[in-house]
Structure formats: C-alpha cells, structure tokens
Amino acid sequence: MSVEQAVIGAPEEDGAKTTPRHVSRSVTLTIGCVLVGVIVLVAVVSLFWVPFAPEDTSGRRLMPPGLPHLLGTDKLGRDLLTQLMIGARIALAAGAGSVLLGGVIGIAAGLAAGFATRWLDDVVSALLDILIAFPTLLLAMLVAATQAASLTSAIVAIGLAMSAIVARLTRVLVKRVLAQDFITASRTSGTSWPRVVIEHVLPNIWPTLSVNLALQFGLAVLAEASLSYLGLGAPPPNASWGRMLQEAQASVFIAPVGVIAPGVLIVVLVIGVNLIADGFRDVADPTRRRRR
C-alpha cells in the first residue's frame, strides 16, 4: 500500500466514484490554489491598503512583532508587513511576467525548431545552447545597461533566459509528438499542418510543458530576488522578498522575523505554483487519470 493510500484510506469502501489517486490529485490542486490564492489576495489588497507607507521610516529599527508594527520593522525602521505585502505584488509580477515572456518566445521558437529542416534545426539548437550557457545575471546587466534597472528590466532578462530553456524543451517534445503514428494517421485524412499543431501537437506537449513552466515560475521568483539584491531589480521603496531576505540576514539573531517571513512566503509561492501545475497536468492528460 502506498503512502498516498495509507493517508487517504481504503478506496472502494463506500463505493466512492473516485480512486485514491484521483482524490489526492484534487487535494494537490486545492492546496496549491489556496497557497497561491492567499498570496494573490495579499498582493491585491496591497494595491489599495497597506498598514504604513512603504517609505515611512518613522518606526524604531528592528522592532520585534507587536503594535503598531504587527511583524516588527526592518533595519531602517520600515514596517515589515507593509514590505511583505508589496513584495507579494512584485514576486507575482516577476514570476508571471517572466513566464509569459519566456513561455511565448520559447514555445514559438521551439515549435519552429521542431518543425524545421535538419540544417535550420541545427542552427537554432546551437543558438539555444549558447543562450542557455549565458548567465542570467550577465543578461540582466546588459538589459539594465540599456535602460534603468527596474522590475521590467529584471523580467525581460529573466524571461529571455527562460525562453531558451523553454524552447529547447518544446523542440524535443514537438519532435517526439511528430514521430507518433497518430500524426501520420491524422494527416491521411487531410489535416493541414497548422491544424496538426493546434489539435495534436500543442495538447500533447502541454502536460509536460506546463509543469516545466511552473518550475520556471518558481525559479523566476528566486532570480528576481537575487537580481534586486544586486540592484538590478525593482528599486526601493518597492520591496522584493529576495532583497528583504538578504538585507535582513545580518540581523537574523536580533530580528529573525525579517528573514523567516520573506523566506516562508517565497517557499509558499513556489510550492503552491508547482502543486497547481501538477494538478493541472492530470486534467490535461486523461491517460494519467484512472478510469472511474
């Protein structure tokens, strides 16, 4: 008996329609939605209300949790809860923006390479390998050099770096799908190439691709954290969880909340997104669902 079954209990006891795996999948999806939902909610609320102004340094420095600063203050005397709430906005924007940019460019390039003739495919693959070997940090510095460092410049850098990885994965997945019998079979009944892509290729690569994009979302949140620490992300007073985490490190023994809170939030967001992707994959791929 697997752990899953042990935790959830015997399946067919009450003639339930769903198998344990099915149940555990929807639990996965639910937990993921709750985790991400909380952070989205916080981000939305921060647009309208935060306990203190983000640049307000009137509080005492490194205050412990209490009143009026619920979670205490940072080393400049700014309200920690305020910073965390604004950070939610930035983390979501960094993750979603990078995934959108990297996903669209990467999937388009990967599809093109997957369909390309041998020599064009070789050229694109070589380009992708070079791009992937290129550090995101260097890319971010280049992008920041053309315009002032901002959240947008960080997203562009992270998204471009991500697009190469997504393109390489997409290319492999496309090639694998195109080699399948059902593509030839569908073409014998006159399906045109564009329709083959829309009806067969995209749905068949999506289950794997979506899980990878979720992973990339988490990595983008972390990448934004390190970029803003180096001054290549959103400038103050816009707090990024990553920068908060690193700024608070020096005072971890005096004010541990300053490290724990952003750290926990990053982990919650990354895990939440991955749980959602995992749950969605089973929705997208019926062969992974057991028969009722």
């Binding site: 399948q180 019998d181 059902f182 030839t184 079979a185 569908s186 073409r187 014998t188 009944s189 006159g190 045109s192 009806e199 067969h200 749905p203 068949n204 289950p207 997208a284 791929d285 019926p286 062969t287």
Partner: peptide
C-alpha cells in the same frame, strides 16, 4: 495532396492505439 487525403484515399493503420491521439 491534402485535398486528396481522406477523399480520394485514406488509411486504416496496423496499431489502433498509437494511430489515435491519446489526449483527444
């Protein structure tokens, strides 16, 4: 060719499991 496929001629393949799209 695409105008002919399905109308002039079509094919039934050997392995029906792989000849059908598993996700459709």
């Amino acid at each position: 060719l695409n105008r002919l496929r399905g109308r002039a001629a079509s094919v039934v393949f050997q392995e029906p499991l792989t000849a059908l799209d598993p996700l459709m």
